[in-house]
Every structure is written in structure tokens, then in C-alpha cells.
Design a protein around this nucleic acid. Sequence first.
DNA 1: GTGTTCACG
DNA 2: ACGTACGTGAACACG
Length: 623
Amino acid sequence: MKRGAKYLAPPLRRGFVSANSAVKKASHDYQLIDTEQKFDEFFTQLKKQKIFAIDTETTSMFAMRADLVGISFSWKPQAAFYLPVKAPLGQKHLESETIRQKLAPILADRNIKKIGQNIKYDLLVLQNAGVPVKGVHFDTMVASYCLDADRKHSLDKMALDFLNYESIPISALIGKGKNQLTFDMVDTAAACEYSAEDADITFQLYNYLKDHLDKEPQLKKLFEEVEMPLVEVLAAIECNGVSLDTKLLKNMSGELNETIKNLTDRIYELAGEVFNIDSPKQLAEILFDKLKLESIRIGKAGRSTDAGVLEQLADQHAIIPLIIEYRMVSKLKNTYVDKLSLLINPRTGRVHASFNQTVTTTGRLSSSNPNLQNIPIRTELGRKIRSAFIPKNKKDCILSADYSQIELRLLAHFSKDKALMAAFAADQDIHRFVASQIYNVPIEDVTDQMRSNCKAVNFGIIYGQGAFGLSRSIGISQTEAKKFIDDYFARYSSIRKFMNDCVENAKRTGYAETILHRRRIISNLTSKNANKRAQAQRLAINTVIQGSAADLIKVAMINIQRKIEAENLPVKLILQVHDELVFELPASDADKHAKWIAKEMSTAIKLDVPLKVDISYGQTWLG
DNA sequence: GTGTTCACG
DNA sequence: ACGTACGTGAACACG
């Protein structure tokens, strides 16, 4: 049984109450505001409020493609109002013009505080409906994320867990699967019950979560000064979107078709039969049964055929290099070349991804629909895809600004290692510097091999890699790898101390903590299972570094967007890729903007090492 | 819905 | 004897 479960009373199940029922709903007061007269009464009350929860209903899960259907408000537990602006034929609804004119001043008033669940969504919907919102005060989803990133943050789950309340599932209104209705087809009475409930619950969750944040001043500061301001920055990024060279992508698609056809034919030829190359199961049968190649690794579903395995088999059979190439080309074509154009918004002509604030356990953002944080760059073909990201206006350019070695700089900052700090202070090539120390040779005598090995170790350290992993990543024996790591820690004992401190702190407090006091709960640090324990230790270390880097770029994003708005600069933030910000701005002023952007990024948080920002710009994201 | 694979930092 | 480097999202196969 789960801890605490036995103390939890069963959730209050909502009784179904039909729209025309005479039953008095003692438990809540949800009002449908579907006439001008009701609106006036509602509006008289709304005007008196300094803080309220707001929720929008729309025709789409995706904010940039959603049309407004209704708005609900709540400023008192168990009480809420639903204002339909679109309704099925024959049902009363308010005129959008009334809503726009009457509500707009209140929504635009930054002194009237708005509460929402995933309020970034409502910001975008309302802005696209011609009603910009200011005074974004509290997002229940973001608050829950700050308190415990690992839990689920959906409204329904939080209502159940925090309020012991089971809310109406959206499927009760619109169904599920491919025959789903859109919300504008739902009865206004049912829509009211659903939507008003969401606003009500959001307001109740606000009270609950606020109390918990109030008990943790440092988390509260992170929430108020970083995460909440970031909501509006992410809304701006999503609204801005990115522009694509569709012609280039279309041409590439045709060329890649030929490549894939050619590879497929040759693979079938060498295999002696036609099979589905995309099926790891069928591929394994061909490679390991028919062609008698050696199976190197097995997983749950059978013998692995991943890139690492294929690489080791590359010179065993002529089919392997073809499969490696087939995998790369089909991946890039199916995931990017053929998919990105499909996501262009017809209204804006641009692609508007979601930048998710409450997904990762470390504090990083994630991106979806499409994921614009994993656009290829490592191969020639990959870079060609990246060159399809262009400015919409010919006189603009794409400017990319990325932190140089942000995680290693944070490692130097946290560990206070004198040598590493000095190396960064002198703007040395950090991998070369470490190599000269570990191999005990002058900087100019460091070979590419030495530098490359130390680069692998530097990265491995951040992830808590052991001798096995290092030996595999740089192709030396485990014994040699162990010696290498021992030498590294002998030379950089302050790094070992930092890593030990990360684990000890996490053991003592129960969580890893970033530079801005973001927390991640770490369990298993005292597990009897050595593997689980080692993994927990790696998390305790990596979370501090990865999470602090996330903190840093979030602060930079907020400061940059504030400057853009305060000075009304013609600069659009269009992407964040963990240590990189991408902008669309006038090519004629690229140097000028590059300067202040680099300054904002490098001064976001003061560290004991300088923060370096590399900038490039040009007619595409390739620079 | 789960597992495998692979794109990115 | 064990598994082995952190954090994501998407496409595809398969039951």
C-alpha cells in the first residue's frame, strides 16, 4: 500500500445534476451568464475583485489554433461564473464584442491579479481573441511544479490529491477518440458545470498551494521572481513562432526519397529478402539469425540493433553501413523534413511549438508539437534541416546566442576549484587546459587525442559516469579508465568534494538544490541496492548542475524579454534550447542587439567564474 | 499502451 | 553478480 493511502478518505464523487434539474446544488453555486442582464450583474461583482481565477474553453488543445468558446471566473470557493461566447445553434450566448469591450480593461489591468491552471494557454487564447491579459499572478500548475517537480500537475490530479475532489472529465462532455466533439458543440448548461468547476478548483488549489509556498520562502521567491514571470516570456515565444523555408524542405524530401529507395533496394539485396527495416525485431532476425552476426546486447524485447551495436558490427558485413545510413536518413526525413511543414499555422504562416514549463525534473524546459529543442545539427544532412529555419522578413536575420561551457563553469563555481576558476577567468579552452594538467604537458603540447579524452571525462563527471562508461566512450580499457578518473580527482579534489557535498546535502535534506533553490526530491540515497544508490547519487549531483544552468537561462530570458518590451525593440525571442536563445531581429542592427543580448545572458546570475556567450547570426539558424 | 530507437542539450 | 551517464519528445512496430 502506498504511504499515506490508508488515511485518505474516498474522494467526493460529484452527483450528476441535469441542466434542468430542480435539485438545489447545495455544494456549489455555478452561474451561467448567457444574457446581457446576467452579464451586468456579474460584471458589477467582477469589478470589485482584486484577484480571481480565470479559465478559458476553446476548440483546440493547442492554444495557437484555438478559438475562444467561453470564459469562467471564480473568486470564492464553490462559486464560479461561466460566460459562453460561442454555443450550439439556438442556445443563448454573449456577444464577443460585449465581452471584449467590458472585460478587456479588467484583464489588461496589471493590478488585478489573475490565477490560472496552465495560464500560458489562456493568455494566448485571449490575446488571439483580441483581449490581452496582464497581471498574471499565480499558475497552480507551475506552483505544484515548484513544490514537487516529480508529481503530476494536471487539474484533475491535483483536485483529487490536494482537495480530495473528483472533477468532471472533459470526455464526459466531448467524448474521446476520433469522434470527439469540439467544445463549441457542448450545451452551455453542461459547459457551465464543467468550466465553472475548473475555475472553482483552480481558485481552491491556489489557496492550498499558496499556503504551502508561504512555508518555503526560498521556493516562493523562485516561484514569484522566476517561474511566474517566465510564463509570459514563454507565451511570447510560442506566439512569435518560427518561420520555415518550405521550398527547401520540399526539395529535400524528394531527394531523400531517392536516397531511401536506393538504400532499401541494396539492403534487401544483401539480406536476400524483403523485410521491414524499421522493425527492430525483423532487423534482428536478418542480422543475427540469417547473416549470423554477433548479438552484442539484449533488451526486454530482444536483441538490440541500436546505433552502438551497429557501429561495432560495421566492418563485419556490408549491410551494416547501409542500415546505419538508412536509419539516419529515414529518421531525419520522417521526424523533421516531412513533419515540420505540416505544423505551419495557416493564420500566421509560422510554426508555434509549446514550451513546457512543468515537465522536466531538473527545471529545464521541454518543447513539443513540434519539439524544436532537438532540431538536428550534428550531421551534414542535419545542418541542412536547420538551415530551413529562416526569418519571415528578408531584412531580418536569425541570431543565436549560446552559453559557452555553462555546466562546467557551474562546476567550477560550485567547487571553487582554483585551477578551473583560473582557466575560465583566462578564457582558456577548458578541455585543453584539463588535458595539459592531467597529462602534465604544456598547453601547446596537448594532442587532439588528449583533449578529446579530457572532454569526455569533463562531460562524464557532470553525469556521474564511472569507469565502464568512460572506457566505452573513449575506447580504452576499464582499468585505464579507472586510472584516468582517479588521476582526475587527485588533481581536482575540490570537484570530488563538491560531488560528495551534493550527495550529503541531499541525504540530509531529502532533496538536491540548485543555485536559485529549486528542489528535486531524491530518494534511494540509502537504498540497499547499490545500483539504485549509485543512480540516486548521480541524480543528486547532476540535478544541481543541470538545474542551475536552467535557472540561469530562465533569468536571462526574463530580463531580455523585459528589455524588449520596455524599449519596444524589434527583437523576437523565438527559441530556447537549454543553453541557447534564438532571436529574429533586423539584420542591419544585428551587432547592436548581439551586444546587449550577450550582456544580459552573461550577467543573469553572478558567479565566481565569468559567463561567456557565443553569438552568431545570418540568414538561417545555421548562422 | 509499451518498448526501441534516435534527434537535441 | 549486477549494470553501467543526466535531461527530454517523436516515430515506428507490435500486441
